[in-house]
C-alpha cells in the first residue's frame, strides 16, 4: 500500500459518494468523471496501461458525455429538480451497507496475499496478439454486440413521426 494508492483511493471514494449523493444530476456526472479518472489512474499504477487509457477514453469521453446529454434531454417540464432519493431509500441504503459488510468481511477474513513477483506491465502488442488468437471469438461477439447496441440505441431513441398518443 503506497501513498499514491491512498490518495487515489480517497479521491475515488469521495467523488463516488458525491456522485451518488449530490442533488444536481449534472454535478453527479461531473464528480463521476473524477471517479472514472481515478480508476484509470489505479489501472495505470497496476501496470495495465492500455486498460487505463481505454477507461478514460470510453468512460470520460463517451459515457459521461452521453449521460450529460441524456440529462439535458430529459429535464422535466414540471420543475427542474425532482426529489433526490426515493421513498424507500432507507431499505436500499441498508442493503448496500449489508453487501459492503459481507464483502469486506470476506476480503479481510481470507489472507489472500497474492504473489508480488516482479511485475511486467502488459504491452499493447501482447494484448493485440491475444485478441487475434485466443480471444478472437469474444472479440467478434463484442463487435456484434456493439453494432447491435448502436443500431438499437438509435432505433429506441429516435423520434417517431406519428406518435400514437
Amino acid at each position: 500500500m503506497s501513498i499514491s494508492f491512498l490518495i487515489i483511493a480517497v479521491l475515488i471514494v469521495g467523488s463516488t459518494a458525491a456522485a451518488m449523493g449530490l442533488r444536481n444530476p449534472i454535478h453527479c456526472v461531473l464528480t463521476l468523471s473524477i471517479t472514472f479518472g481515478g480508476i484509470a489512474a489505479l489501472f495505470l499504477q497496476l501496470g495495465a496501461e492500455f486498460v487505463g487509457l481505454t477507461q478514460i477514453m470510453v468512460y470520460v469521453g463517451a459515457v459521461a458525455i452521453l449521460a450529460v446529454f441524456a440529462i439535458m434531454m430529459t429535464q422535466s417540464r414540471r420543475g427542474l429538480m425532482l426529489g433526490t432519493f426515493s421513498r424507500n431509500a432507507l431499505v436500499g441504503l441498508l442493503t448496500a451497507v449489508a453487501v459492503f459488510s459481507v464483502l469486506g468481511w470476506a476480503v479481510l477474513s481470507q489472507p489472500v496475499a497474492g504473489v508480488t513477483a516482479a511485475v511486467s506491465p502488459v504491452s499493447v502488442q501482447q494484448i493485440g496478439s491475444s485478441l487475434m488468437h485466443e480471444y478472437v471469438l469474444p472479440l467478434e461477439l463484442i463487435g456484434l454486440l456493439l453494432t447491435a447496441a448502436l443500431i438499437g440505441a438509435i432505433v429506441i431513441a429516435m423520434e417517431r413521426k406519428e406518435d400514437t398518443e
Binding site: S33, L53, M57, V60, G61, A64, I65
Partner: peptide, 18 residues
C-alpha cells in the same frame, strides 16, 4: 515513451469535451 502513446493522446483529447 508510452507503450500506448497514441491512445494516451486520444484519451486526453476526449477530456477536452468534458
Amino acid at each position: 515513451n508510452l507503450n500506448a502513446g497514441v491512445l494516451f493522446f486520444f484519451a486526453v483529447g476526449s477530456v477536452v469535451e468534458l
